[in-house]
Design a protein around this nucleic acid. Sequence first.
DNA 1: TATGAATGAGCCTTCATTCAT
DNA 2: GATGAATGAAGGCTCATTCAT
Lengths: 203, 203, 203, 203
Amino acid sequence: MKAEGRQVPAAEKYQRILDAAVEVIAENGYFNSPVSAIAAKAGVADGTVYLYFKSKDEVLRTAIDTTFARFYGRVEEEFKTITGPKEQLEFIAQVHLESHENRSVAILMQTEMRQSAKFISEFSHHHLVKYISVVREVVRRGQKMGIFRSDVSDGVVAHCLFGAIDELLSSAVFTGRAYDAKATAAQVIDVLLNGIRSGEKHV
Amino acid sequence: MKAEGRQVPAAEKYQRILDAAVEVIAENGYFNSPVSAIAAKAGVADGTVYLYFKSKDEVLRTAIDTTFARFYGRVEEEFKTITGPKEQLEFIAQVHLESHENRSVAILMQTEMRQSAKFISEFSHHHLVKYISVVREVVRRGQKMGIFRSDVSDGVVAHCLFGAIDELLSSAVFTGRAYDAKATAAQVIDVLLNGIRSGEKHV
Amino acid sequence: MKAEGRQVPAAEKYQRILDAAVEVIAENGYFNSPVSAIAAKAGVADGTVYLYFKSKDEVLRTAIDTTFARFYGRVEEEFKTITGPKEQLEFIAQVHLESHENRSVAILMQTEMRQSAKFISEFSHHHLVKYISVVREVVRRGQKMGIFRSDVSDGVVAHCLFGAIDELLSSAVFTGRAYDAKATAAQVIDVLLNGIRSGEKHV
Amino acid sequence: MKAEGRQVPAAEKYQRILDAAVEVIAENGYFNSPVSAIAAKAGVADGTVYLYFKSKDEVLRTAIDTTFARFYGRVEEEFKTITGPKEQLEFIAQVHLESHENRSVAILMQTEMRQSAKFISEFSHHHLVKYISVVREVVRRGQKMGIFRSDVSDGVVAHCLFGAIDELLSSAVFTGRAYDAKATAAQVIDVLLNGIRSGEKHV
DNA sequence: TATGAATGAGCCTTCATTCAT
DNA sequence: GATGAATGAAGGCTCATTCAT
């Protein structure tokens, strides 16, 4: 960004600050994370943070934006080769669940994104909306193809899927439990597709 | 200041502070809600808040505790008459979804409960764990009774249900959408029980 | 203002802060006067300043406003009994020159009122304009009465008078010289009225 | 960065920084003018400023010194040919009033020169003292020659003249009014020499 | 010389909490 | 119990100055 081809590229410092912010905020929450703590963890002076970010807010926003960008990047990329609705849902679930691998990032997404502080809630809701709309589209395609029931709202289904995965992720993150993202994704999709009612339907 | 008639009973002041806190915090977030604002909305002096609560934190904690207590109260009460696993799940979903009726409380639960990692893991998560465990029990009973499939983890199912409902609620709260709690609960349970896979094609 | 009839009336603290501010700012300039220094000199905590003033800016503005209000108060009062244009100019000059009696206030008026910092310059210019307009009116009356020459601009005369007095005051303040306000005022008015050209005119 | 042709001669850069400082400071005030803003307007790097000036303070001091030097240069030069006291006063007034032609410089002189008491007493006042002493000398010569009244203090007269002109200048600068320096100077000197008392009535 | 990234001291302001009344 | 004035610690942010290149 402000990077010149110096010995230590500025971009590296930018990333260091971002990483430090994620860690510190994940640990203490946004409002309990002084810029000084972030700077210290990043190994830079307090003022340096402001060479790379306009404000403390912007650091948080950037961290969240980046995470979502990465998420959507992976999804878009893979959707070129995975085209079946069921497989696509499975892939989304899997990538979503994989985000627990970086615990700090995962915590950040589970907590700070849901602040009610206006600036955050309005901005992060926007990301959620996009996520949901991606899932809805997949669901609708599945309905048109006759793979999914058409008598349930695609919106409800999308929220159910997102909520289910997110809750699993959240729970795992906060209890420290580990899991196999792919396998868990498969379970969730199994429940979503087939339901938990025993008997007739699964002969 | 606003000395109305005789002295207001203490208990009422306690509740007024709590209600004011919920509203103010829902609007601005915990860290952007000065005690003075809460006191003002409650119609008491700043110092009075400290006669009823040890700290600002405690006000928030109490609000959340109270909400959960009410929730579990309703559930326990009803479970005396509703005994079918499916019906119980439906009832939990419905009560959970009904909490959007008090918008401030709903916002509070969707946001401030998800504070920093520390706050969550040390306090809020405890409530979620209880919620999940209640659902798990119902699921297990259903599995033993042969109503629910036994080849899916009750934990996964519980998280799926909680997450799905919570996400629907959350989305409705932030978009301001209204819905029929009972009908929506039925839909969610339908999806959960029967899945979205189209019957004809996959018999 | 926010004063209650307490033991130490709040109004007293308000004044103490204002006085301390005037002294500290006169000594070091507005931008070299931390609020902490003002608070310390007033014998209150830093935060207390903000119970009485919205901002550091407001302290300065209030000090200047108050000084001018006092000035205009005295002038208006006296103009009820002093009605001759010459005598009125002499009185204005005298009151203006007397302001050196409180050295800190005088310094403040000579320095901070002329900041180019936007917020100050726009606000203080307003005071100057009023001063000038008062003098102009007196001059115009004198001209209509035939006491003053009508072939010189009242505006120029007013600025000359204000500037002359202000400069004398300023010089005295910064060199620490003392003077007799009434006598000096008389001299200035003498020069203004009669000029310094020797001879014919003063037979 | 903006490496234009060969290296720019150092002296030119020095002047560019000085000019930029005057403009920026005139616009925002000394304390609201970051060195970075001055450097930017001068088209040099922040650090470069410190190759030409020891500190930000020195830039301001130098700008003021330079302006006064230019002023005294013109006065001294012209005093070789203009020798009549009245004409000399008129010339000083005129040159002083002409300084409004460069608005930024004029603002700087009207505002930043009147910084804190310290700044004034230790630096700026020195310039004013010299100005006043030049005028006093002229007045004294006029008194000795019998052109000016001897019963008024030369100091008072000098301050009156300086103050009057300075106030006219100041007012014009801040209201954005333009005027003819020579004609205005003549008016001021007319008032100073002849006074405003109406001739007919007071012979 | 020139650069501009980096530093870190310092300041305005907020606000949870206390306590004299 | 109730009040609200007072406190003072803490934090976000700015910016003069330095220094490695």
